[in-house]
Write a protein that binds this DNA or RNA. Structure first.
Length: 679
RNA sequence: GGCGAGGUAGCUCAGUCGGUUAGAGCAGUGGAAUCAUAAUCCACGUGUCGGGGGUUCGAAUCCCUCCCUCGCUACCA
């Protein structure tokens, strides 16, 4: 029996969009399986998660929709919490970083670092919008580039010519918030000196790895960061939305999201214990040397959990008596792609959890994802594979085994667990097998080899079918009823074990089976040996997994790549006058060549009104230059020239993206002459 | 172009601190059985382990080089 104390966290999802299947595969499903397994094992385990609710992207969503950031996070927090619920995530708490307990926690950390004299203050000039009374993040300021005259340059960098300059050099700056000209105002920010911790961090990673066997991909990532050398990181930002910097004269400053979001794990744990008898119970998980802390994440979060968060905890421990423990392992997963490509909401590629679970039940999804987790490299979700996993594994192998056994029990043994006869070799072997599976599967889960564990679970069902076939109870029921009874008894025993070992992966179905068996979950260690007693009453069997028809899958495949209409039309109107300023002309491509050192750019010579001109187009990945020569195209002829990779572009060629993400040049009818105005 | 990851059976993926005939599941082919959700069970794989070169008695596994894919990043007027 295990009394291990374990703290598990999954990366806090950002409350600025829905959860999709990729998220589940990365940080949530593996953790949930791990946690559910440990609960059965008897470990003292808590599982923490919540919404990450600060940062600039949320304010931008709010601005775009004309609502408040609070409305944005309320919406997505609720939506994501519901999705997780439906998906069967067994968090002990799903908290949120907008709660006071989180603000306090984050501020306390900042204060401690500040009091220790650890944080470095650096001053710089930044734009300030006097009307909106706020400092403007880079993306909220626009002006004319002092080098190339580009009118939509950012505050310290021109996207057009690539020039870097001091914000004070920007010509005619405009605030995107109020439209006013912002003034330059001195502001200061605090920086966390990560470099100071590098040596200890390297040791931490090395030690943890040798003790707990970190995943190779995670180690590689860390080594890369160490090799480049860790640099100071700003921990504050000039922004209205977030955790206020707890210092005097720090108005309008908040803690940078990366700094406070990871502390959300701690504050969420405090929240969990808030209303319990032992309000300080959270400390027993975070500050007891005997606790094992495991942080499940997707690979994009690696640096925060292997380097930054540990550094912050070290810094806290340096200056305080209550010492936090560091993660013993950070089993980061790679990414799940969708039908061969990256999830992309704007291209209508992929499906979010809520939508999926409207269409299909939860367990087949959990099973499919779990059996193909991106543990070593990126993997793909395919609709057809989902269907195959559901139909031929869950329904045919597993479901049908349960069904055929139950039908026998009800038809020939009055719905009761029958008395066993003498055990043959085959029976003993099966009983032995039942005993071995739980420990084998448990061992794999503890090594974070969830995919292999799931495979072994299904193997038990395969063994069950083989045993059933080899025993031929349909024959023995006529000749030797006691032998038949033995077979069915052992099959029921197998089903009991199946329900047990499968329960971390497909909890809803597992529960159904226990209802059918009139039995319940036991300690993992007992699962292969706990015996259903003869005479034990069984309940009626029900179908566990229904097959998914081809049509249902086809329908989903057909939907791929079709972008929702509302997204297409969510664009501001322009007047006819504005439109008519654009001079669209037909043109013919006379020359085309790749620009060296550039992946995307082609240099084109096109003939149109006013002669031949050079256009730089970002279509190198979509067209071979020769194929473009002679093509009739449409260009924006009066666009202000710009320089790209040192080449002047005198216009822009129109192209559209198809559902595969390929750019297609728009071609006018062949009869049209070059230089004609488009009307 | 820079950084990172990867290229193994028709498909999805294991394996890789060098070592006997390179694996699994699915799909496919043939057979058995008929209790069951037309489910199950058995048998069947000549795969340039991306290409080429090297190290070695021996390489999918180590080194070099090239090609391709994916992600981040810069150039997408």
């Amino acid at each position: 029996m295990s009394h291990e104390k374990i703290l598990v966290t999954s990366a806090l999802p950002y409350a600025n969009g829905p959860i999709h299947l990729g998220h589940l595969s990365g940080a949530y499903l593996p953790a949930d399986i791990f946690v559910r397994y440990h609960r059965l094992k008897g470990s003292n385990i808590i599982y923490i998660c919540g919404s990450d609710e600060h940062g600039v992207p949320i304010t931008i969503t709010a601005d775009n929709e004309g609502i408040k950031p609070q409305d944005v996070i309320d919406r997505f927090h609720e939506a994501n919490k519901n999705s997780f619920d439906k998906f069967g995530m067994s968090f002990d708490i799903y908290s949120r970083t907008s709660l006071p307990v989180h603000h306090n926690t984050a501020q306390t950390f900042f204060k401690s670092f500040h009091d220790q004299g650890l944080l470095v203050e650096k001053k710089s000039l930044q734009f300030f919008d006097e009307k909106a009374k706020m400092f403007l993040p880079d993306r909220y300021v626009e002006g004319t580039c002092p080098k190339c005259g580009f009118e939509e340059a950012r505050s310290d960098e021109c996207e057009n010519c690539g020039a870097l300059y001091d914000p004070s050099e920007l010509v005619n700056p405009k605030s995107k918030i109020s439209g006013e000209s912002p003034i330059l105002k001195e502001t200061s920010h605090w920086y966390f000196p990560l470099g100071k911790f590098q040596e200890r961090l390297e040791k931490f990673v090395d030690d943890s790895n040798s003790k707990f066997n970190w995943k190779e991909n995670v180690l590689q990532y860390c080594r890369g960061w160490f090799k480049d050398g860790l640099k100071d990181r700003a921990v504050t930002r000039d922004l209205d939305w977030g955790v206020k910097v707890p210092l005097d004269d720090a108005d309008g400053k908040v803690l940078y999201v990366w700094f406070e979001a990871v502390l959300g794990y701690i504050s969420a744990t405090k929240e969990l214990f808030k209303n319990k008898e032992n309000e300080n119970g959270w400390k027993e998980y975070w500050q007891d040397k005997d606790t094992r802390y495991i942080a499940f994440i997707g690979k994009d979060n690696t640096v925060f959990h292997t380097i930054i968060f540990p550094a912050m905890l070290m810094a806290w421990n340096d200056g305080n008596d209550d010492k936090y423990l560091l993660p013993e392992n950070v089993p980061a997963n790679e990414f799940l792609n969708f039908e061969g490509k990256k999830f992309s909401k704007s291209r209508g590629w992929g499906i979010d959890v809520a939508e999926f679970l409207e269409l299909f039940p939860t367990d087949p999804l959990r099973y499919t994802l779990a059996s193909n987790l991106p543990e070593n490299k990126d993997t793909d979700f395919y609709w057809k594979e989902f269907q195959a996993k559901n139909n031929s594994e869950l329904a045919d192998i597993f479901g049908n085994f349960v069904n055929r056994t139950f039908i026998f029990a009800h038809k020939h043994f009055e719905g009761k667990v029958p008395e066993t006869g003498e055990l043959g070799e085959i029976d003993k072997a099966m009983l032995e097998s039942i005993k071995e599976y739980p420990s084998k599967i448990g061992g794999l889960i503890e090594k974070y080899k969830i995919r292999d564990a799931v495979f072994e679970m299904m193997n038990l069902a395969r063994d069950g079918n083989k045993y059933f076939n080899d025993s031929e109870p349909w024959k023995s029921v006529k000749q030797d009823k006691l032998k038949c009874a033995t077979t069915i008894k052992i099959c029921l025993q197998t089903i009991n074990t199946l329900a047990e070992v499968f329960s971390p992966v497909i909890p809803f179905s597992s529960e159904k089976i226990f209802k059918m068996l009139n039995s319940e979950l036991c300690r993992w260690a007992d699962s292969g040996t706990s015996i259903l007693k003869p005479g034990h009453e069984l309940n009626e069997a029900e179908i566990l997994f229904t097959k998914i028809e081809d049509e249902a899958i086809e329908a989903q495949i057909n939907k791929l790549g079709k972008v929702e209409e509302e997204q297409v039309y969510d664009v501001p109107e322009i007047s006819f006058e504005e439109f008519s300023k654009v001079d669209l002309r037909t043109a013919v491509v006379e020359e085309a060549e790749k620009i060296k050192k550039s992946k995307k750019l082609l240099k084109l010579k096109v003939r149109t009104a006013g002669g031949t001109r050079q256009i730089i187009a970002g279509i190198a990945e979509h067209y071979i230059p020769e194929d473009l020569i002679g093509k009739k195209v449409i260009v924006v002829a009066n666009l202000k020239p710009a320089k790209l990779m040192g080449e002047e572009s005198q216009g822009m060629m129109l192209a559209v993206e198809n559902s595969d993400g390929k750019l297609k040049v728009i071609e006018p009818d062949k009869s049209v002459n070059p230089g004609t105005k488009v009307r």
